[in-house]
Every structure is written in C-alpha cells, then in structure tokens.
C-alpha cells in the first residue's frame, strides 16, 4: 500500500472517531440540566382536554372562573375561554347563527323568539394546545412555545406584542392584554396542573362538560372517554395537532 494512502486513512480514521465522541459530548452539553421541580416531572405528562357538548348547559361558570383565576381583563373581548351559542338549520350547516354575549360570562339570557325547527347548542372554546401550533411557528422571538408537557405558553417578559400569533391562531384564542401590550392566552392553568390540581374551568364546570386529561397517564379517565366517544378536534383540516377533543361536535362549528 502506498504509505501516503496509509497515513491518510489513519488520519481520517482518528478524525472520525474524535468528531463522533465530540458530537456525543456536545449533545450532552446541549441537552442541559435535568429537571429540578420536586413533585412534577414535565416529561411524564402530555396535557389535553375533552369537552362534551352534549352536557354543556351554557352557565358560563368556566368563563367566570377563568377570568378570576388568571386575572384576565374583565371587559368583553378579552377571554382565555368563552362559550359560543349556536343556532343551526339542519339542512344548512354552512350558515349557523353564532353569538357569544360577553363570552358567556353572565350566562346566556333566554331569547324571546325561539325557532323550534332549528338545532340549538353551546360550544365552549379555549386554546386547543396544538402540538403543531401555527402560533408558535410564526413567533419571531421565541416568546411562545409548546412546553415539554404539551401546553402552549407565552413568555410575557419576551413577547414584543407584534400580534403575528394572534393572526396565526386558527381558533382565535389569543388576545393582546391592554395592560402589558403583550399577548395573553389560556395556559391550561399551568400553575394549577403542575401542582396536581385541575384547571379553574374544569374545577367549576357543574356538569363535567370539561375534563382535563393527561394523555401520558394510562390511568387517566380521558383514555376511556376518547375510546368510548366519537370525538373530533376543531378544524382538523388545519393539521394543527389540537389536543382539545370535542364530543358531539356539530359539522357547523367553526
């Protein structure tokens, strides 16, 4: 063998081995420190929610509890969760009549004229905590993100208030907090679920129409619910990876 060739092969071999070990070491450095929280391990959870439209009575408890728990501005137009009231003529799913007076905060007053020939139902809405979230993809500064336990959060100290994400969210779940001029949205009560409590909306829902679920916990009743009901996410055609599953969702709901 040509000695030059042998030397070249030896050198290349060494270089390969060295760069491989260097890359392993670099990955170990990049992976960072292990989690430090005492009773909560992010990697053990993957949060979602089920909403059972068939039992929602439109009392607005969730909306009031959410504003209370999360210090959401009390004026209309600022909601982390809200309830929509649908009226659909069965043969015209394309054109439902939808309203949401004050997001359902005061409950829903009875309307005088009710057409018995149309369908009536409530649809509670909140952030769908998508794991392929368009709002996260458009943030120019990394102020919004999907946490390792599957919750879409906002870093309020880092948000510029550019409103890209407000426009990107297909579900209209984000708003600009007028007090801070930064974006605000449902955190799935991150301060509660990391302490073993359920969200404020699920805590106060009188009919159990909303249930928080940990999709990584095999003992969580959410699995049984998903198995035994025909559920659907909102706008599945957007492929956002939404994790709020609706039971009894009508085709007219947008």
């Amino acid at each position: 063998m040509n000695p030059d060739r042998r030397a070249f092969l030896q050198k290349t071999g060494k270089l390969l081995v060295l760069s491989a070990s260097a890359s392993v070491a670099w990955e170990a450095i990049v992976a960072g420190r292990p989690e430090t929280a005492e009773n909560y391990k992010m990697s053990d959870h993957w949060w979602g929610m089920v909403i059972d439209i068939d039992v929602c009575i439109g009392c607005g408890s969730c909306v009031r509890a959410c504003k209370e728990e999360n210090d959401v501005p009390r004026e209309p137009l600022f909601f982390r969760t809200w309830v929509e009231r649908y009226q659909v003529t069965p043969d015209d799913l394309e054109h439902p009549t939808v309203d949401s007076p004050n997001g359902g905060y005061d409950g829903f007053p009875v309307k005088d004229k009710v057409d018995e020939k149309v369908k009536h139902f409530y649809v509670p809405k909140l952030c769908n905590h998508c794991h392929q979230s368009p709002c996260v993809q458009v943030c120019p500064v990394g102020a919004t993100f999907v946490s390792p336990d599957g919750v879409v959060l906002v870093d309020k100290t880092y948000c510029l208030g550019c409103r890209y994400c407000v426009q990107a969210c297909p579900y209209g779940c984000r708003f600009i907090d007028p007090r801070t001029e930064t974006v605000d949205k449902c955190t799935l009560c991150y301060h509660r679920i990391t302490k073993g409590l359920t969200t404020a909306c699920c805590e106060t829902c009188p009919t159990g129409a909303r249930q928080l679920g940990d999709l990584k916990n095999p003992k969580d009743p959410i699995h049984e619910f998903l198995r035994e009901h025909h559920v659907l996410v909102l706008k599945p055609q957007m492929a956002t990876g939404a994790k709020v599953y609706y039971n009894g969702l009508d085709g007219s709901v947008r």
């Binding site: 728990e69 390792p148 409590l197």
Partner: peptide
C-alpha cells in the same frame, strides 16, 4: 434559552408561579 427548545426555560417557572384562587375540591 434553548434548554428545552427555542424559548427561555424560565418561562415555564413563570407560568407555574402564578397565584392560585381556586383551592380545589
């Protein structure tokens, strides 16, 4: 920043540190 992804890892602690209002059942 970059510990878990393209965001500040401390934001998770910020979100978890809000005061509770509902005690839970």
């Amino acid at each position: 920043f970059g510990l878990y992804g393209h965001y500040r890892a401390g934001a998770l602690d910020d979100a978890g540190a809000r005061p509770l209002h509902y005690a839970g059942r």
